[in-house]
Amino acid sequence: MPNDLNQQANDVNQRVNDFNQRVIDEFRANKGRLTGHFAQARLLLLTTTGARTGTPHTTPVGYLPDGGDRVLVIASAGGADQHPDWYVNLRAEPQVTVESGSFTYSARAVVLTGEERERAWARAVEADEGWAAYQRKTTRIIPVVALHQIANGGPPNVNASSPAEAIKVVHDAFRRELALIREEMTAADGPTLGAQLRVNCLTFCQGLHHHHSGEDMALFPFVEDRHPSAGPALRRLREEHDRIATLVVDLRRAVSAADTDPAAARADVERLTLDLEAHLTYEEEQLIPLLDSPA
């Protein structure tokens, strides 16, 4: 009987590992885009160091945007009574690697405690009642972990083989996130926006601001120096950055207000979506051919 139970446990673990590996392979092959059950999910790949083995282990994990340079992951294990292996690993070695689909970076894992954990948990449950369902299945307090990006002192590590591909990869990440926010806005009911939805919007706005600032300071001068004929297109792109920045300010203001009108916030998101998609498409049409060609 013990041998039979051990074999059943091994079979279950193998099925889980096989499933995770399929998700990992699809995630990496498609720069974070997934199909099926996870098509509309926010997922990242978390690589930890085995607490017993010292070897790297990669696991697909759902995450919550949290503004700034950190995201939150929840060690639910589907409501199991034991913590997931990745959580045990990062408790032993808190430096981890995060793959977002568009970027890969090192991060420091910090387990939230006290009021900070309660606020983050409340946001998660408000956004998806499934987290509360997992908590009801177990007596352990499900941990919430913040993954703080570790600055590398240089440009971000984009999961792309060329500058031209990098533009498309980063743009597609913004498109996916904005599509998720639009869906969440549509699904939101009640007189105000949920706390996590507010954070999602503000995190997106911050990321877009950083991206456009980086283009203005580095990418556009690089292109202009090597392809002077691109001057008119770059001037238009800079003007579009200014217009989009105004729309971003409007959205930030809308979702930050204590008495946020969800309808007004949805309208701001729609305006931003239309302008941003047109901008991203034009930038790809103008810059990708130049970056793919010799100076």
Rank of each mutant, 00 (worst) to 15 (best):
T58M: 05
Q196Y: 05
T104Y: 09
R52E: 15
L64E: 06
P65R: 04
E118Y: 10
A39Y: 08
R226P: 07
V269Q: 06
S256D: 14
R28G: 06
T59F: 05
H227T: 01
A9Q: 04
P56G: 00
T186D: 12
A295F: 09
A127C: 12
Q95C: 03
T138D: 03
C205G: 15
Q7H: 09
A51W: 14
A146I: 09
D81A: 06
P163L: 02
G54Q: 08
F38T: 11
G79D: 04
A107I: 10
R176Q: 03
A29T: 06
E215L: 02
D18V: 14
F220W: 12
L147R: 01
Q14P: 00
M1W: 09
R108A: 04
V110H: 01
A264S: 15
R235N: 07
T113S: 11
P56W: 07
L43P: 00
F220E: 03
V73A: 11
N17G: 01
Y134R: 00
G79M: 03
S100E: 01
L202W: 05
N13R: 10
T186M: 10
H212I: 12
L43R: 02
D216M: 07
A179E: 15
E240D: 14
A230Q: 00
L247M: 13
A132E: 12
H171T: 11
R52N: 14
Q149E: 15
V199M: 03
A146F: 03
G214T: 08
A195M: 09
S76Y: 08
T281D: 11
P289G: 06
G78K: 08
A164S: 09
S100D: 05
P191T: 09
H279C: 11
I244T: 04
Y105V: 01
P191G: 04
V223Y: 02
K137A: 13
V98Q: 04
H227G: 00
T58Q: 06
D189S: 11
D66H: 13
K137W: 04
G68C: 10
R243G: 09
V12E: 13
A107M: 03
S213H: 15
F204P: 10
A254Y: 02
R123L: 01
M217K: 15
V145P: 05
Q7F: 05
L72G: 10
N3F: 06
L208R: 00
H241Q: 14
I142M: 13
A124E: 01
Y282V: 07
L44R: 02
N17C: 03
N157M: 02
R226Y: 13
A109Y: 02
A187V: 10
A218K: 02
E240M: 11
N159M: 06
E129P: 02
P143I: 07
A179S: 15
S256W: 05
F222C: 00
V199P: 00
L72C: 14
D69Y: 01
F103V: 05
V125Q: 03
A80Q: 12
E184D: 14
L208T: 04
L272H: 07
N159S: 05
F174L: 10
P156F: 00
S293C: 01
D225F: 15
Q14K: 12
L251N: 08
S102G: 10
I74N: 02
R266Y: 14
F204S: 07
E26S: 13
L34E: 00
V169K: 09
R70L: 08
A254I: 08
Q8M: 13
I288S: 02
A245R: 07
G32D: 04
D261I: 00
T53E: 01
G114D: 08
A265V: 15
A107K: 06
P191F: 08
A295H: 06
E270S: 05
